[in-house]
Amino acid sequence: MGLREDAAKLRQDIEDEQNAKLRIALFGQPGSGKSSLINQIVGQPVARTGVTTDTTVEAQIIAHEELLFVDLPGYGTSRFPPNEWMDRFRPEELDLFLCVFAGKFHEADTAFFKELKEKGRTCLFVRNKLDDLWEDGRTTDELKAEISADVERQIGAAEQVYFVSCRTREGLGELVDGIQAALEPALREKYARSAKAFSLAHLEAKKQACEKSVYKHAGLAAANGLNPVPGVNVGVDMSIMYKMFAEIRASYGLTDEKVNKLIPSLLPLGKRVLDYGTKEGITLLLKKFAGKSASAAVGRFVPIVGQAIAAAAGFGMTLAAGKSYLNDCHELARQILERELGIGQDA
């Protein structure tokens, strides 16, 4: 296969993977906090939330990185009678279901769950609003046990119940890991890249998933990169690199807003992540690696001597730059998470 075919195939692979998003649907009674839960899972306010009825007026589809959340509207509200609602979507097109509840089970929940089970879909039970769970003279553990027993009684099978609070963030780490475990292996990487990491182990999984993506992009950038970057003697494709950097940064949830609000001790690293995320920054980074990985001589032969040599050098450089950027993002995210978990060094 020639270079061009290789490039075309690589591009197709990357596009296919990005187009095939992981689809997670949330269903549950109005007010059970489905939208809030989506926001917690991705670590950013992507879904609208509110206390009044029908904030979610139609099946909200929220794309975040490679995740696609289908926030099924509050069925059972006057605007969405259950039957009409059920006709609107096809459960077989979704990868995972979360049954979100914040109180007792309603007829609609049980009926919907049974339908999903019949169609062989995976569904996790999430008892949201754990901070609301309170009864005079009883412990939280007693109440949790009672809820788990009730779920079993209502649906006729023992299912694990994830207890979470979007307010205190209790239990979210377990839920995110539980979702990961429930997915088909092929989908886990996507999820690791896109969901917010609540644990260092998840952050490590995120890094590995991102690294694979860096290799793919490096191949593509090199194969495409027949236009040398000014000051760098090797052909690399800037636009692909730019896109790769943006994806890495998004995987770690390092938005401009978040980085700019960092505590002073993390700010230098944060600034580097932001700076290298721009085209000018990438050029700077490449110049840094041009000396290390590619001999200056190679570039001068582009495209005369052979595209293959240039491509190999370009591959190495894109890969090195990509990994370096990934390391920075990972390091920053790790330090932020350690602080969130309260295991970091003092500020």
């Binding site: 109180g103 007792k104 089970f105 309603h106 769970l133 009864e135 005079d136 109440l143 009672e146 809820i147 027993a149 009730d150 009684r153 209502q154």
Partner: peptide, 28 residues
């Protein structure tokens, strides 16, 4: 609705004096 807190409210309104007490619980 189920779980709205009806029984707990009754228990409070009557100062826990109902006999038998209303059945408060997480069970549907």
């Amino acid at each position: 609705q189920p779980g709205a807190g009806k029984s707990a409210l009754l228990d409070l309104l009557t100062d826990k004096s109902c006999d038998p007490r209303p059945s408060v619980g997480q069970r549907t």
